[in-house]
Design a protein around this nucleic acid. Structure first.
Length: 301
DNA sequence: CACTTGACCTGTCCGC
DNA sequence: TGCGGACAGGTCAAGT
């Protein structure tokens, strides 16, 4: 699921809702989803909500952070203290409108929580709750000491590269990280989190489109000019993703249960058979590195 | 080594 | 309607 813009969208939403609240209860519906001792966190107060790459962290004042990875289908949804009897019409209506402004709930976003993909529920001192939903059960929540987040690599096994929106992400750094994958397709190399943090399958296709580079072009064939274009293309894709509240193909919703709009503005992702917004050529879909990859055969050489 | 293929899971969609 | 197969935002280990 969530790539950097989706996780950042959740972070921005959650931050407004739970900072300053203490955690009063943790319900673990799927043990594999919650890989830490809940007692560490019970009674602790939320001091911040952070993000690194695609990893979300709820930071507590006891020196620990609850770290979330949403993988393909994870959702983190906050709901206010509604304790509304599910049958009460008026409160149901107001709940629905606050969560689904501008659209109708789909089967994925079942009106009621918890639902059959809810894995963990966090309950806070004001009665509000955070639901960790994850249909495919690939995601996880871990507990890490705040000062060990970096050394523990935010719970990830492999190296995490630079944040694309931080100042230290230059085209030179991008080039340096990319050339380790010299024989790979550029789009595949962008998916490696050590190249640049937080780029996934949607934004890798979009970054290639933004830069006018064919996703199957080999890294070793890229010129400095190409690296500069790709650098700009990544920053634009990620920035636009955040600007439009992330992408929803099927699962993604923000902390308030709303879908992201980025795919309405995407240049190529999921647009196979449609015409390119720049040159009207039909967008095609191929497989690169085993993943669906979209591009305009005219704009991207 | 470097790159590719499964595995981890569940659900949906499409063709027959 | 039912059934099989492909496919879905991500990592990571095992296999070639």
């Amino acid at each position: 699921m969530p790539e950097l813009p989706e996780v950042e969208t959740i972070r921005l939403g959650l931050q407004k809702k739970i900072v300053g609240l203490s955690l009063t209860r943790i319900q673990i519906l799927n043990p594999k989803s919650f890989q830490t001792d809940p007692n560490i966190f019970l009674g602790a107060t939320v001091s911040g909500v952070v993000r690194r790459a695609k990893v979300l962290g709820i930071e507590f004042d006891n020196g620990y952070t609850l770290v979330f990875h949403l993988k393909m289908s994870g959702q983190v949804i906050w709901l206010p203290n509604s304790h509304l009897p599910a049958l009460e019409c008026s409160s149901q209506a107001s709940l629905t409108s606050s969560r689904f402004v501008g659209g109708h709930p789909t089967k994925d976003m079942l009106g009621d929580l918890p639902n059959n993909s809810t894995r963990v529920i966090l309950e806070f001192s004001d009665g509000s709750k955070v639901y960790f939903n994850d249909q495919r059960k690939f995601g996880w929540i871990k507990g890490i000491k705040n000062e060990e987040l970096k050394i523990m690599n935010y719970g990830m096994k492999n190296t995490i590269g630079p944040e694309p929106l931080e100042k230290d992400f230059s085209w030179e750094i991008l080039k340096q990280n990319l050339i380790k994958h010299k024989t790979q397709d550029i789009k595949v190399a962008l998916l490696d989190q050590s190249t640049v943090a937080g780029v996934g399958n949607i934004y890798a296709s979009e970054a290639c489109f933004n830069s006018g580079i064919n996703p199957q072009k080999k890294v070793k064939d890229l010129t400095d000019d190409d690296f500069k274009k790709i650098h700009i293309g990544i920053v634009k894709a990620i920035s636009d993703g955040i600007k439009y509240g992330g992408s929803t193909r099927t699962h993604f919703v923000n902390a308030e249960g709303k879908k992201g709009l980025f795919l309405d503005y995407a240049g190529v992702y999921n647009r196979v058979g449609s015409s390119c917004k720049i040159c009207q050529t039909i967008i095609i879909k191929i497989t690169s590195g085993g993943r669906g990859t979209f591009f305009c055969p005219n704009c991207q050489k």
